[in-house]
């Protein structure tokens, strides 16, 4: 095992250990924390985040950000809901397909603008965040998706399931597993790491740099679309503000999970642990009676701590005469 793999493993172990510690502390304060129904609710809470974070990890591995995912979740949820409202309930698989297609379109727009026009992703997706939210408004046409509009087939996914694990959670898990396999076992997946690690070298090696960037944004969009359907299944309704602010939580999860904001390093396992940590903190606040209003502040502080840790780690690890090109953050 290489030194970096060892280090990464250690980092993920450290994160897992921290989560375990947190769970013990919270459970010691309030035994209900470990009850089956509460654990289920934590899982359901992080379902959306876990799927979105798996895709966002791929984007961040290429040194990019996708800030438009929250709005995309809203667009796909409201679009599917509105179709059902006006044309009757869609079969669940078709509803999910429509949701993914909606997200894919947004992702492709992002990908082409960023890869072909070389526009900094953070700026472009910030613009898309509001444009897509405007589209949500247009689609909703002054209304919203109510619980009677959402097909029962969809909301059923949030209940039951094997071992009390709702199918919804399994869908998110499948997304994470697919991302894991893609990143580990396919050349395109390895290219994602290579492009983020050293874009110039990737170009010189003849790797398809723009295609890789388009691909990760397309995947991010598609998963955000899927997450819109998951949103409907989970909550059973959607307002035009659905999903807003999700992008921050998702980036927090990825960064806390150990991915570098300078691209090229990060893992699905770490990202899932990051999601779990955020879920435990959010749920723990509720169980311990801490105001929910502190949650944003905690997430913000976590992001800062994680990036500082990443920067420190990099500074220590870089040898004096390093072969790797220095990395610069692009503003």
């Amino acid at each position: 095992m290489s030194a970096v793999a060892r280090l990464a493993r250690v980092r993920e172990l450290a994160l897992a250990g921290f989560i375990a510690l947190l769970v013990i502390v919270i459970a010691a304060q309030n035994g209900d924390f470990l009850s089956g129904s509460n654990l289920r609710s934590i899982l359901l809470d992080i379902t959306l985040i876990a799927a979105l974070a798996s895709a966002q990890l791929m984007v961040m591995l290429t040194r990019n950000f996708d800030l438009s995912i929250g709005s995309t979740v809203g667009l796909s949820a409201v679009t599917v809901g509105m179709i059902c409202q006006q044309h009757g309930a869609l079969p669940t698989p078709l509803a999910y397909l429509v949701a993914v297609a909606v997200g894919l379109v947004v992702g492709l727009v992002n990908g082409f603008a960023i890869a072909r026009l070389r526009i900094p992703s953070i700026i472009f997706t910030l613009g898309m965040l509001s444009v897509v939210r405007g589209a949500v408004y247009l689609v909703a046409d002054g209304g919203q998706v109510n619980s009677e509009d959402v097909p029962a087939g969809m909301t059923d996914l949030a209940t039951g399931g094997p071992f009390g694990i709702p199918p919804l959670v399994l869908i998110a898990l499948a997304v994470a597993l697919a991302a894991f396999a893609f990143l580990r076992w396919t050349r395109s997946g390895r290219n994602v790491y290579a492009v983020g690690s050293n874009p110039d070298a990737a170009r010189l090696h003849g790797l398809p740099v723009s295609r890789t960037v388009v691909l990760v944004f397309a995947l991010s969009g598609a998963v955000a679309g899927l997450a819109g359907a998951l949103y409907l299944s989970r909550f059973g309704f959607a307002q035009i503000t659905a999903g807003s602010g999700l992008e921050l939580t998702v980036i927090a999860a990825v960064v806390v999970g150990g991915a570098s904001i300078f691209g090229g390093s990060g893992s699905i396992a770490g990202t899932l642990l990051g999601c779990l940590l955020l879920g435990v903190i959010g749920n723990g606040f509720a169980v311990l009676g801490v105001s929910q209003y502190w949650q944003d502040a905690a997430y913000g502080a976590l992001i800062l701590l994680a990036v500082i840790a990443d920067a420190r780690l990099r500074a220590v690890r870089r040898p004096a005469r390093s072969a790797a090109a220095p990395k610069e953050a692009t503003a």
Partner: peptide, 17 residues
């Protein structure tokens, strides 16, 4: 022009693993 985050073997075969 190599990929610092990747291992030696992967740098040799990048794109042709």
């Amino acid at each position: 022009s190599l990929f610092g985050d990747l291992e030696v073997a992967e740098n040799v075969f990048v794109g042709r693993q």
